[in-house]
Amino acid sequence: MCLVLAVDLARVSFFRFAVPGTAEDVWTSEEREIGFPATQLVASWTARTPPGAWIEVALRARAASGARTKWYVMGRWSEHGSPRTSVPGQGDEDGDVAVDTFVARRPVVAYQVRITRHGAGALVTGLGVMASAVPQRSMAPSERVAAEPVELAVPRYSQHAHAGHHPRLDGGGANWCSPASVAMVLGYWGRGPELRELDWVGAGDPAPIVDHAAMGTYDESYQGTGNWPFNVAYAGRYGLAGFVTRLRSAAELELFVRAGIPVITSQSFKARELPGSCYSTNGHILVVAGVTAGGDVVVNDPAAPRDDEVRRVYPRAAFENVWLRSSGSGGIVYVLHPPGHPLPLCTDGNW
């Protein structure tokens, strides 16, 4: 069952939509009540798009006054990359889209999501929307879920092993924390591209799946590989279900790991704030793979210089602080799992 947690990072509402696999070009959901005044919305999806086909995902919201916003495009997606882009320049008096997140200038209480299919054969296999209102507040460390340690056998890939590779894809390995993390989780689940899909990478690459993930998540407008929903959608190409949401504590992370599901997290910090990291970052993605007997967090951190240094143990309180505190990415996770693998049970509404 879902535990009552000591840390209340945010008000979070996550909802899954069933998109019919019909031939209709445009599908629009009913209006979904959030249950509180939200300041951010993130849509995430998985879809199959044959060559020449793509989808557009859009949201519009309703304020407490009853006024509705315009439709904001949250992403144009093709697994083949034409197009695969966020849409800048949508800001108005109601809000704006910051790459993958709708940021409301006035709190919103409801929303709709719209899928537009272009070309033949596009099929949406999963769609979720996370609404949140994140306060700025200090947080106390959460308690362990259980005393027994747990660690999942997640493959280890250093993003820096790919330094200089395919620099048109966000400069090569230095900025590839997100695709490296997704590649690790794909490997854990025994999924990923076939050998023939990796021919373009080139000989001598230490982990071609990382280069492939960078290619498969690259956002042409953002010019980077860190678009959260695009990373989820990439994993969907290989049969995984997935979504972006916010978790409220390391205890919630622990619930997933104990259910056999590694979790990809987003955080920023100075080196002194996360002992053992030895680097500072304005935004970084890594994989939570376990918890020690003392409650510290076992991660696969792609910022390590080599694959054999990727496994690290970060103090629980320090990790929880740098992961949860940001109003932009605070508590953000990608959850990727086979459709038949059950999630931990929870009634709090954030997954």
Score class of each variant (00 low, 15 high):
residue 2 C to I: 12
residue 3 L to A: 14
residue 13 S to C: 14
residue 16 R to S: 10
residue 16 R to I: 03
residue 19 V to T: 05
residue 22 T to A: 10
residue 25 D to Q: 15
residue 27 W to I: 04
residue 33 E to G: 07
residue 42 V to C: 09
residue 43 A to G: 11
residue 44 S to H: 04
residue 50 P to Q: 11
residue 51 P to D: 11
residue 51 P to L: 10
residue 54 W to V: 09
residue 55 I to G: 06
residue 56 E to W: 05
residue 60 R to V: 08
residue 65 S to N: 03
residue 65 S to A: 09
residue 69 T to H: 09
residue 76 R to A: 06
residue 84 R to M: 11
residue 84 R to V: 04
residue 95 G to K: 07
residue 97 V to S: 09
residue 104 A to E: 01
residue 106 R to Q: 12
residue 110 A to E: 02
residue 117 R to A: 05
residue 118 H to G: 05
residue 121 G to Y: 07
residue 126 G to P: 00
residue 126 G to Y: 03
residue 126 G to S: 10
residue 128 G to C: 12
residue 130 M to N: 14
residue 131 A to S: 15
residue 133 A to G: 14
residue 139 M to D: 05
residue 141 P to I: 01
residue 143 E to A: 13
residue 145 V to S: 09
residue 147 A to E: 15
residue 150 V to T: 13
residue 154 V to G: 01
residue 157 Y to E: 00
residue 158 S to T: 00
residue 162 H to P: 03
residue 163 A to V: 04
residue 164 G to Y: 10
residue 169 L to K: 10
residue 174 A to Q: 11
residue 184 M to N: 00
residue 200 W to G: 11
residue 210 V to C: 01
residue 214 A to N: 05
residue 220 E to H: 15
residue 223 Q to R: 15
residue 235 A to P: 13
residue 236 G to M: 03
residue 242 G to H: 10
residue 251 A to K: 02
residue 252 E to N: 04
residue 269 F to T: 05
residue 272 R to F: 14
residue 276 G to E: 04
residue 279 Y to L: 08
residue 285 I to W: 06
residue 286 L to R: 14
residue 297 V to E: 09
residue 315 P to G: 10
residue 319 F to Y: 15
residue 322 V to T: 00
residue 336 L to K: 01
residue 345 L to V: 13
residue 346 C to P: 06
residue 351 W to P: 02
